[in-house]
Measured scan of single mutants.
Amino acid sequence: RELRDAFREFDTNGDGRISVGELRAALKALLGERLSQREVDEILQDVDLNGDGLVDFEEFVRMMS
């Protein structure tokens, strides 16, 4: 339940997936600093298991585990 709530916080447009822009904004909020595009792309590449360029809830749960 906590992970579902956190996912909703990251998924600002409510489409059920976290985009690169949403991921960048969430990481900035969490870390208090802006990451480079390359750093965000590397994180997305590690987390995006199905290669669609987005983070779905299952991928998010794995990222947070």
Rank of each mutant, 00 (worst) to 15 (best):
R1I: 07
R1K: 15
R1S: 08
E2I: 01
L3S: 02
L3I: 09
L3D: 02
L3W: 06
R4Y: 02
D5M: 06
D5I: 05
D5H: 07
D5R: 08
D5W: 02
A6S: 11
A6E: 09
A6H: 02
A6R: 14
F7Y: 05
F7K: 00
F7E: 00
R8M: 10
E9S: 08
E9I: 08
F10K: 07
F10I: 10
F10L: 02
F10T: 07
F10R: 08
D11W: 01
D11N: 01
D11M: 00
D11T: 01
T12R: 06
N13A: 02
N13D: 11
N13T: 03
N13W: 00
G14H: 13
G14Q: 12
D15N: 11
G16E: 08
G16V: 00
G16M: 03
G16K: 06
R17K: 12
R17E: 04
R17A: 12
I18P: 00
S19C: 04
S19E: 06
S19Q: 01
V20P: 15
V20L: 14
V20M: 14
V20F: 12
G21R: 06
G21E: 15
E22L: 00
E22P: 00
E22Q: 03
E22D: 02
E22Y: 00
L23S: 05
L23P: 01
L23Q: 02
A25L: 15
A25I: 01
A25Y: 07
A25T: 10
A25C: 15
A25E: 14
A25D: 13
A25V: 10
A26F: 10
A26R: 03
A26M: 15
K28E: 12
K28N: 07
A29M: 10
L30E: 09
L30R: 14
L30G: 10
L31Y: 09
L31G: 14
L31C: 10
L31W: 05
G32R: 05
E33K: 13
E33Q: 11
R34F: 04
R34N: 13
R34E: 15
S36L: 12
S36G: 09
S36P: 08
Q37H: 02
Q37G: 09
Q37P: 15
R38I: 13
R38Q: 05
V40P: 10
V40S: 11
E42V: 08
E42L: 06
I43A: 15
I43L: 11
L44I: 14
L44W: 02
L44E: 08
L44R: 06
L44H: 14
D46I: 03
D46G: 08
D46W: 02
V47P: 03
V47A: 07
V47M: 04
V47C: 05
V47L: 02
V47G: 04
V47W: 06
D48L: 11
D48Q: 15
L49F: 06
N50K: 12
N50D: 15
N50I: 02
N50M: 00
G51L: 13
G51F: 04
D52E: 13
G53Y: 11
G53Q: 14
G53V: 09
L54S: 12
V55Q: 03
D56S: 14
E58Y: 03
E58R: 08
E59F: 07
E59R: 09
E59A: 09
E59K: 09
F60A: 02
F60K: 00
F60R: 00
V61Y: 11
V61S: 15
V61I: 07
V61F: 07
R62N: 08
R62D: 14
R62Q: 07
R62E: 04
M63K: 02
M64S: 15
S65T: 07
